[in-house]
């Protein structure tokens, strides 16, 4: 009887969520005044569509284009790698302060509870770290790019910081969650031996979280490559820059060359991070 009621309740809430999604979609279509006909290209748009896809099998590769292509690819990697080089330390520091594990009041039953004053300070640091993560993460990297371009002027550093800030916070959030889910026995044992919080964190918690943390960092690198490519639309000389130019001048063959290059680059890192995850799962 009891079990049935619990089960019924769960299914009921799921149904509420599903109905909510359907209702939201209906509202959205009404609010946007969406006409299915607009999704079908006509007239000049149809010509663009036909010509663009006709060129898909004829990607161009001239000597000048090859130089552009290599510059775009290398710059994409440079922006992504520079941003990740900043985001990783930021994420590790934020992740340390935003995880509950290092200041946790659960002492593993050995009675070595931190003092009340220390708990308050730790709590404040924790809340500050969590708030910073939520705040800086809620602005998309391309919006950061727009803001930083306006604030700091045209310089590659604006683009690097634009990716590094939200990515660092996302890494911090995920690192904190991963560390918090690690089994705590080793940490308790270390604390029982009198280890400082940093020691507990580095030797009791981090080793068991390292695989997940590394896998996620590689996945973020792949995302950073995509973001760096799109930064090209904002004037940085990455793949997106050359893609936009080729498309707007109607050189669809060249546009396809850049698209294929982007696909190859992202595909390579997709495979790499996937292989890394599989190697950890083994």
């Amino acid at each position: 009887m009891m079990a049935r009621r619990v089960r019924g309740d769960r299914v009921g809430r799921r149904r509420v969520v599903a109905l909510g999604v359907v209702a939201a979609a209906a509202w959205a279509a009404w609010y946007l005044d969406l006409r299915p006909g607009d999704a079908i290209p006509r007239g000049e748009h149809w010509v663009v569509l036909r010509d663009f896809f006709a060129e898909a099998v004829h990607p161009v590769l001239t000597a000048t284009l090859r130089a552009e292509l290599l510059r775009g690819l290398w710059n994409t990697v440079v922006f992504a790698a520079s941003a990740m080089a900043l985001a990783l330390p930021l994420g590790i520091v934020l992740g340390f302060f935003a995880s509950t594990a290092w200041w946790a009041t659960d002492s593993g039953g050995d009675g070595a509870r931190p003092t009340a004053a220390r708990c308050v300070v730790c709590r404040l640091v924790f809340v500050a770290a969590r708030s910073a993560i939520a705040l800086f993460r809620s602005v998309h990297e391309l919006l950061w790019a727009v803001l930083l371009l306006c604030a700091l002027g045209n310089s590659p550093l604006s683009g690097v910081f634009a990716i590094a800030i939200p990515y660092g916070c996302t890494l911090g959030k995920v690192f904190a969650e991963v560390v918090d889910e690690v089994p705590r026995e080793a940490a308790w044992a270390l604390r029982g031996l009198g280890a400082a919080p940093l020691q507990v964190f580095c030797f009791g918690l981090l080793p068991r979280a390292l695989a997940d943390v590394t896998a996620y960092a590689f996945y973020r690198f792949e995302c950073a490559l995509r973001s760096a490519a799109v930064l090209g639309f904002f004037g940085f000389e990455t793949i997106g820059y050359f893609l936009q130019q080729a498309f707007q001048t109607g050189s669809y063959g060249e546009a396809w060359t850049h698209l294929y290059a982007l696909l190859a680059l992202v595909g390579l890192f997709d495979w790499w991070s996937g292989a890394l995850r599989r190697s950890f799962a083994r």
Partner: peptide, 19 residues
């Protein structure tokens, strides 16, 4: 593998300015 922004850029040229 193709970023949303690139998809949207391409579709915008093929469908015109609507959602």
């Amino acid at each position: 593998a193709i970023p949303e922004y690139v998809w949207a850029f391409l579709f915008l040229a093929m469908l015109g300015a609507n959602p």
